[in-house]
Design a protein around this nucleic acid. Structure first.
Length: 425
RNA sequence: GUGGGCGUAGCUCAGUGGUAGAGCACCGCGUUGUGGCCGCGGCGGUCGUGGGUUCAAUCCCCAUCGUCCACCCCA
């Protein structure tokens, strides 16, 4: 007796029942991205481990303990991508696509992080992301954020989200603030909780967004990041917020928003909801001006974001909308002798009505059983083909979702008749 | 990696130290050419797995795996 094999922990199947939600999200996102001039890029799931350690930061949790890393058959260390930006930068650079400024690309696909699963956090999860290269000004930051806001609005979830915004300044300013913060926190080491003491030397800025209530007073008293910004950084941020205001996009300045990845500079932002439990960030991004150079490329600035599809799908699922597409026609075969004729008839209908969903009853069954299946399929119309109809060159049309009277239509005119009589939905 | 909750039918869950039930779903019949509502019948479980206590364990104990939620981290 063999044991049943199950899917790996944290790697869920996405079942047909949820497919319409995913399809709606991905279709909507693709359409919005297209309207802003983004082209799709697809990169491999496996990359050199060094790509991620270099860009995400060797001291981050993602690289330290969450990557799926292993040696391939030639003992090269390879990793499954934990996020999308590093791969996109690599691909753009590798193919010389950064020569012209203003490249806009987007991607969609699975990412992998070895974490303990919980609501909104899986080991295999999916992101849709957008990246823009070669534009340094706040205008593209603003357009990028506006594009995300438009997507939320088209998905009907804008009201559940709030935009949090911050500036990390230039790499130099960020570095300087980091050490200033570290020194200040080190003086208060005794007031830090266990987690924060551990973070003090590895990633002191992360202490700022600690959830521990006992830490809040200390965090309030700590030196502010905004005070460490130079004139250029401050102007970038002010121009960005001015543009957001002009576009009517509400935002909040969250000085504790520091983001997890090492490569961010200047603008960082998150779209957050209270409707998903502890993992409320639905989309996050920012500017990464040093990243391309870090990978041996020219000094090309970049900015982008990534959204978590699982989290957005859950949000969409909370609204009781129906994204599924229902069949239009279900063909009932009243006489088993007519199976071949029935299949041929439906092929002709599919030729004539390309926009319609046309089902054939398969595997026989009593008329009663076939009607039951037709009803359950949610089809608008049941067609009944039996020996009586066949002899007369007709077919029976029965409306399943309305009280319209059952009728007979000649087979020769069936496609035209359906065209004229079936409502478009 | 840490803490807590939960594992009984496809799903949601009851239940008892003497090897199990409901609702929904599914199949059939009531109508030998008509679905939905209703009625009747049926299919379906090694009670997560392994060990221990006991005459006897789905129930008690231990371990293990899975799952959910939170911490951490992050989309």
């Amino acid at each position: 007796m063999s044991e049943k094999i199950q899917s790996l922990r944290g790697m869920p199947d996405i079942l047909p029942a949820d497919a319409p939600l995913w399809q709606h999200l991905e279709d909507t996102a693709a359409a919005v991205l297209r309207r802003y001039g983004y082209a799709r890029i697809s990169t491999p799931i496996l990359e050199s481990t060094a790509l991620f350690t270099r860009s995400i930061g060797a001291a981050t949790d993602i690289v330290e303990k969450e990557m799926y890393t292993f040696a391939d058959r030639h003992e090269e260390s390879i990793s499954m991508r934990p996020e999308g930006t590093a791969s996109v930068v690599r691909a753009m650079l590798q193919h010389g696509l950064l020569q012209t400024p203003g490249q806009k690309v987007w991607y969609q696909g699975p990412m992998f992080r070895y974490e303990r699963p919980q609501r909104g956090r899986m080991r295999q999860f999916h992101q849709i992301g957008a990246e823009v290269f070669g534009l340094a000004g706040p205008d593209i930051d603003a357009e990028l954020i506006a594009m995300s806001a438009r997507l939320w609005s088209e998905l009907g979830i804008l009201g559940q989200l709030r935009l949090e915004l911050n500036s990390l300044g230039s790499p130099a300013e960020r570095r300087q603030y980091r050490s200033q913060l570290h020194d200040w926190l080190a003086q208060h080491r005794d007031s830090l909780d266990e987690d924060s003491q551990r973070r003090l030397d590895t990633n002191p800025m992360r202490i700022l967004d600690s959830k521990n209530p006992a830490m809040q007073a200390l965090i309030e008293a700590a030196p502010k990041l905004s005070a460490a910004l130079g004139d250029d950084s401050r102007r970038h941020f002010e121009q960005l917020t001015g543009m957001l205001d002009a576009m009517g996009i509400a935002w909040q300045h969250n000085q504790r928003l520091v983001r997890g990845l090492d490569y961010y500079t200047h603008t960082v932002f998150e779209w957050v909801t209270d409707d998903l439990g502890a993992q409320g960030t639905v989309c996050a991004g920012g500017r990464y001006d040093g990243l391309v150079a870090l990978h041996g490329g020219p000094e090309v600035p970049g900015v982008g974001f990534a959204m978590g599809e699982e989290r957005l799908v859950e949000l969409l699922g909370q609204q009781q909308r129906d994204f599924g597409q229902r069949p239009d026609i279900y063909l009932i075969i009243a006489d088993p002798q007519l199976q071949a004729e029935a299949l041929a008839l439906n092929e002709r209908l599919r030729d004539a009505l390309p926009g319609r969903i046309v089902l054939s009853n398969l595997a026989g069954g009593s008329l009663r059983a076939q009607f039951k299946r037709a009803d359950r399929s949610q089809a608008q119309i049941a067609l009944v083909l039996g020996s009586q109809e066949w002899a007369a060159g007709e077919i029976t049309v029965k409306w399943l979702r309305s009280e319209r009277a059952q009728t007979s239509v000649s087979l020769a005119q069936l496609a035209d008749w359906l065209q004229q009589n079936m409502p478009n939905n």
